[in-house]
Every structure is written in structure tokens, then in C-alpha cells.
Computed example of a mutant assay.
Amino acid sequence: MGHIEAVCVSREKGELKSPVEGAEFRKDWGIEDDAHAGDWHRQVSLLAGESVDRMRKKMPELSHGMFAENIVTRGIDLCALAVGDRLMVEGGVVLEITQIGKECHNGGCPIQVATGECIMPKEGIFSRVLEGGRVAPGMSISSSSGV
């Protein structure tokens, strides 16, 4: 079992997300007040804090939300998950994995340009909200596959 290190949102697509103290997740919609919410398969994005740590060795100034991730986890192996697996967040929020990875916009995000690498294409996880509720940093998160 892992925990949520950060929750991030943005009002507009294509802009960096900012960490928030918590957010409301709506069933079949995504995160309230986030640009990527809607009736589609990529309502919520996740990235492992361990992946961010690896990139911080190249870019120490990286902060949560710079990869446009909604949730940063710690202690759960997101890369071992498959489409269809579910993540359960303390308090009852349930996310279903719908996509693994996403190509950077316009041939390369600023992080890829600066470091030659971006982790979202291989390590970013996308999901839809099956059960809603409030999510905040510090809450536990676990997967249906036990990873």
C-alpha cells in the first residue's frame, strides 16, 4: 500500500498543474475544477513520486504538477499496473486504469527538451473515476492487483 504525496489541478489544458490541499473527485467526470475532467477515458493522471525523484537528479527545480499529473503517489508500483486495474483511495474513491503513457505535446515538453527525457510517455498512468469523493495528500492508495 502506498500514499498520495500530492494532488494537482489546472484550469486550462496545456498548462502546468498546481498542488492543492485536496480535491473533489466526481464519478464519471474526474476532478472538480480541473481542465482534464469530462466524459472521456483520461479524467485523472497519476505519476509515481519515485519517478519524479529520478528526474529531479537532472532538474532539481521540478515540483509537483510540472508533468501535468493530477496525483503523485509514493510506495505503489504504478508501472506494474495494467489497463483495467483499479486503484482504491482511502475514503472510497476508486479509479480504473484506462491508459498507460502519453506522448509529450508538440514533439517534446519543456522537461524533455531540457533533459532529453520525459517520464510521462512510459510511466504516466491515466484513469477514470468509478467512485467519487475527496482526495488529499497523505491518504492511502492501493491497487486491485496488489502492487
Rank of each mutant, 00 (worst) to 15 (best):
E103L: 15
E21P: 00
I100D: 04
A136S: 15
A35C: 10
P121I: 11
I119L: 15
G124M: 11
F67Y: 14
T98H: 04
H36T: 02
I71D: 01
E123N: 10
A35Q: 04
I71L: 12
G84C: 12
R26I: 07
G22H: 01
F25T: 04
G84T: 11
D28P: 03
S18H: 12
L78T: 00
M88Y: 13
G138Q: 05
L46I: 03
K13Y: 14
C8R: 04
V20R: 01
I111H: 07
M139P: 06
S45Y: 02
P110R: 14
G49Q: 07
S144K: 07
H64M: 13
G92P: 01
E32K: 01
P121S: 13
R54N: 08
G84D: 08
G14N: 14
S142N: 05
T98V: 00
P19T: 10
E5V: 09
G49R: 00
L81F: 03
G49I: 06
H3I: 15
I31Q: 02
E117P: 01
R42I: 06
I125T: 08
F126Q: 05
S145P: 00
D39A: 14
A82Q: 14
M66G: 00
A82K: 13
H105C: 10
E123W: 09
G132Q: 00
A23C: 09
E32F: 06
P60R: 09
V83P: 07
V147S: 09
C79V: 13
T115Y: 03
S144Y: 09
P110A: 13
M59Y: 06
S10F: 05
L47W: 07
G30I: 01
K102F: 10
I31D: 00
R134Q: 09
P60D: 08
I4E: 02
V113G: 07
D85V: 10
W29V: 01
Q112C: 12
M1S: 15
D77V: 10
K122P: 01
T115L: 15
H64Q: 05
E123R: 15
H41F: 13
M59V: 14
H64I: 01
E131H: 09
C79Y: 12
A23M: 09
A48M: 07
G116N: 08
C118M: 12
A23V: 03
H41E: 12
I71R: 06
G92I: 11
E50F: 10
A114G: 07
S45P: 08
V9R: 05
V89C: 08
E15L: 13
V89E: 05
R128I: 04
R42A: 11
R54M: 11
M88I: 13
